[in-house]
């Protein structure tokens, strides 16, 4: 197990190196010279040269890449072309918002997805099953941003029961702490602020989780059906073990393996979907920030965000794979992935 873990971690190195290379190629090699974009076409040649020198863009490209890697390893992604603030500072100020939203969404999607999936597998071809199938179809077909806007129209515009934008009322905003408002307000015992933060989270979570919820429901259902049809489950049933027990102790446990994988993979689509959700709900995370930075050709920021998100995603999948190995002792640790 330890050997397997170490091996998996070592395998991350080429992947992360590759991601850095891809990001670097897109931003520094394929993209046009940022100097005129930042300074304006009418800027003098000298001014542009000076700017390029200041940002290390006149060095040989290989050196630039090595510098980029070296700096990235220490969490230094340079300074934003526009605000002249360290990119890392700008990102860290917004990262907790995205993390909080993504965690809430994946928890919501996993818990309800598995629940719905199990229920519809056990009660196959009943109203519950059909309802969950339809829900799953809507979930994978409806664009997140459309769903988000419809939620706003319903809950904020018509019923006036949920706030439409932002993370918390400004006067209740926690200062310091982790930046995860639910956690911060809970640990400081500020329940009014906790409630307000939770209310702000409901719609973004719903919108972001819907797609993953659908995928997880469908996956759980089909995986449960597979295991329920296995011989040993039939045997267990015929032996008179209560069907509740069968589902809980035998079928679900075995079905969990593919489900865990799907949940891990869903994190990727969640991080991508956060860009849209954050834009619709004016959620101050790195997703909406990235969209703003593209317009400005603020390459260092876009570069850093893509790299960080890819790293997070790869790490999460590593953790999922480890849990997976944990759950299923039959996995051969030497197995080559891919």
């Amino acid at each position: 197990m330890i050997k397997y873990t170490i091996k998996r971690i070592l395998l991350l190195i080429p992947v992360l190196f590759g991601v850095s290379l891809v990001v670097f190629l897109i931003m520094r090699v394929f993209s046009p010279d940022p100097a005129p974009v930042v300074l304006g076409e009418h800027a003098s040649r000298e001014a542009m040269q000076a700017w390029r020198n200041a940002h290390g863009l006149n060095d040989p490209i290989v050196w630039q890449f090595i510098d980029f890697l070296k700096n990235a390893l220490t969490g230094n992604f340079g300074t934003s072309y526009y605000t002249n603030q360290p990119v890392m500072k700008e990102i860290m100020a917004r990262f907790p918002a995205t993390v909080e939203l993504a965690i809430c969404a994946i928890l919501f999607a996993s818990v309800f997805g598995v629940l719905l999936g199990v229920v519809s597998a056990v009660r196959k071809n009943t109203a519950v099953d059909y309802a969950s199938t339809i829900l799953a179809l809507i979930g994978v077909s409806m664009p997140i941003f459309w769903l988000g806007i419809l939620l706003i129209i319903l809950f904020s515009g018509t019923l006036h029961i949920l706030p439409s934008t932002g993370r918390i009322q400004p006067m209740l905003q926690p200062v310091g702490g982790t930046g995860l408002y639910l956690w911060d307000t809970l640990t400081s015992g500020d329940f009014e602020a906790f409630g307000d933060a939770a209310r702000h989270l409901i719609m973004p979570t719903l919108a972001l989780a819907m797609y993953s919820l659908a995928i997880i429901t469908r996956m759980t259902r089909s995986s449960m059906l597979d295991t329920l049809n296995q011989d040993y489950i039939r045997t267990a049933r015929s032996k008179g073990i209560s069907s509740h027990r069968v589902v809980k102790h035998h079928a679900l446990r075995n079905a969990m393996i593919p489900i865990t994988t799907v949940i891990g993979l869903q994190f990727g689509s969640l991080l991508g979907g956060a860009v849209l959700t954050e834009t619709v709900f004016a959620w101050p995370g790195i997703g909406s920030y990235t969209v703003q930075c593209i317009q400005k050709s603020d390459f260092p920021v876009v570069q850093a965000v893509v790299l960080i998100i890819a790293t997070v995603y790869v790490l999460i999948n590593l953790i999922v794979d480890l849990i997976y190995a944990f759950l299923d002792p039959r996995i051969k640790y030497s197995k080559e992935e891919g």
């Binding site: 080429p14 891809v22 991080l271 991508g272 998100i309 790869v314 999948n317 891919g338």
Partner: peptide, 24 residues
């Protein structure tokens, strides 16, 4: 080849598309 595929899989598609648009 499969390592390269892993690399491509580790960037969410919307984000990669956004990065492309920032560049191109």
């Amino acid at each position: 080849i499969m390592r390269i595929m892993d690399i491509m899989l580790s960037i969410p598609s919307i984000l990669l598309a956004i990065a492309f648009m920032a560049a191109l």
